[in-house]
């Protein structure tokens, strides 16, 4: 039987179809896995809450104690300064590496090879004992007279040694990240900028680097978080950062576990804050790329917590036709 063709008039009169109210497909495997994980979580939570050896009271006592907080400040300072050195050095090394001068690119290559090829702990120890290598540090003309003499022992305090070691080491890693970011920018961008008469540095600063940032920021975020944790190595040169402060306390009172938990809580808190910051910086440098502005973190969280409301959109309204088209 042939279906009767509807007239345009009939089509305009039909109601929009009902919203879909389908019964969802069941996923038994997913339910079993979820049940197993739920049991494990409950068991873990129970043990953490009831095992007296966690000594949560002690954790509470030390969480905001002045020695721990001072250690936290040292850890944060060290992270910030080392990352700042690392990023600036990384840009310089990346530009050197891409330079047409064989000496510049070769020097950059050797630097990266050397600092990435040795453990950062070794580098921290080296800087700490640099006075054994260069007892005095002078400022002057190479192979000529020098004007300022300083005693390396007093100049290179453990903090300075840690800062230099971590920062110079980070520079080697950051340079590869920056270089990958710069390479990710299409060559047409440089062509267009140069065709407009922009100089090479202008092109780099105004056109290439802002776009390279999109590729540079995410790994830099991970580097920062990883730096925060790597700073704990300075315990080896006796610098009282967060971890070493905790160690100093438990070496006296033997409350090892609660103090390690205290330090961990602070590391976790700072990495969480860093992650949120990273999200917003990425959003900033993504501007002009996505066709729609990305949702903010809160909007994302809301969508994640209540996926049903976010995912299932009502069917689009059928196009309205003028009622009185006759």
């Amino acid at each position: 039987m042939a279906t009767p063709t509807r007239t345009a008039d009939e089509i305009t009169r039909t109601e929009p179809p009902d919203e879909i109210q389908a019964v969802p497909v069941r996923h038994p495997g997913r339910w079993i896995a979820a049940a197993v994980v739920a049991v494990l979580i409950v068991a873990l939570a129970h043990s953490v809450a009831t095992n007296p050896r966690f000594e949560w009271g002690v954790v509470g006592d030390y969480l905001f104690s002045s020695r721990i907080l001072k250690g936290l400040v040292v850890t944060i300072e060290l992270t910030v300064v080392a990352m700042a050195i690392g990023i600036i050095l990384g840009v310089v090394l990346a530009l050197m590496r891409m330079s047409e001068s064989a000496l510049l690119s070769g020097a950059s290559w050797v630097y990266i090879w050397l600092l990435r090829g040795t453990p950062v702990l070794v580098q921290i120890l080296f800087w700490n004992f640099i006075a054994a290598l260069y007892p005095t540090v002078g400022l002057g003309i190479p192979f000529g007279p020098s004007f300022i003499h300083l005693d390396a022992n007093s100049l290179i305090t453990p903090f300075v040694a840690a800062m230099l070691a971590l920062g110079l080491n980070e520079g080697a890693y950051m340079s590869e990240i920056v270089r990958a970011g710069i390479i990710s920018v299409e060559e047409g961008q440089t062509d267009a900028a140069q065709a407009l008469g922009m100089a090479r540095l202008q092109t780099m600063r105004r056109v290439v680097l802002p776009q390279a940032m999109r590729a540079i920021i995410p790994p830099t975020g991970y580097e920062t978080i990883s730096m925060l944790k790597t700073t704990s190595l300075v315990a080896f040169i006796g610098l009282a950062d967060l971890l070493y402060s905790a160690q100093l306390i438990y070496s006296v009172n033997y409350k090892t576990i609660p103090l390690l938990i205290t330090a961990s809580i602070w590391y976790l808190a700072v990495t969480s804050v860093l992650s949120v910051g990273q999200y917003y910086i990425e959003r900033h440098y993504g501007r002009g790329r996505a066709r729609e502005a990305e949702p903010t973190l809160l909007e994302r969280l809301r969508a994640g917590l209540f996926p049903r409301h976010a995912d299932v959109k009502p069917l689009p309204e059928p196009p309205k036709m003028p009622e009185d088209h006759r």
Binding site: E186, G188, D191, A192, A195, Q211, G288, R289
Partner: peptide, 14 residues
Amino acid sequence: EVGMVFQRFNLFPH
């Protein structure tokens, strides 16, 4: 002093 326009536009996306 010389303008150039490219096949793939090469506008600055940011």
